[in-house]
Amino acid sequence: MRVGLFVTCLVDLLRPRIGFAALRLLEAAGADVVVPRTQTCCGQPGYNSGDKQAARALAHKLLDEFQDCDYLVAPSGSCAAMIRVHYPTLFADTDDAAAMSRLAARTYELTDFLVTIAGLQTVPGTFAGRITYHDSCSGLRELGVRKQPRTLIAKLPHVDLQEMHEAQTCCGFGGTFAVKYGDISARMAENKCAQITATGADAVVAGDLGCLLNIEGRLRREGSQKTRVLHIAELLAGETPEST
């Protein structure tokens, strides 16, 4: 099973550890993992800013890079949804429609892949303590990722999952929204952080780095140093800040 890891631009730049965690989990699931070297971005920033042309160019580039993979897996519901849901729309009624639909059909968000396709039984993570899980919007609503991360979390014997209120409410990240409408975005993050803190969790976990940056940035600005902010891949792989 040849799996192409799409690292995502945020992970590449800001938190490489998540990429290595994803790699470790995919290998634990028995995948033969390749990481195409020329990969950059799925095109979502352009697509959501109204620039379809740039999005299409990046879709073509990504299609070439992952052509020979049985699956494409990304540690992000948002990027996976861009490819799985939006690429076919972008290329509807063009000569590339079929190729893009085939790429879309073999693209998965990491936890979805590990549960639905790979049937991963044991996870290497060693975290002990209480966590709470934030459902990132794109993964949740566009890909139906809700049970998959929880199924995997349940395999960690020393983790107690305490659900927060409104786990499915947006944290306020929204890509460029967080900069363009900073005060609305920060208020949404503030509301999210209040729900996180109310659970008394040692760590908040989510499947998208964008949300995590937003949540961590807000927690730290509020002076809260205690709650750790982890990507689901880091939690499951045991690649957390003090383990590396």
Partner: peptide, 24 residues
């Protein structure tokens, strides 16, 4: 240029090396 972000939040800094370089 990202005051919209940092007015209400910190920005978590990267570790200093990209995944691409570390993986290579």
């Amino acid at each position: 240029l990202a005051g919209g972000w940092t007015d209400g939040r910190d920005f978590p800094a990267p570790s200093g090396r990209t995944f691409r370089d570390l993986y290579a």
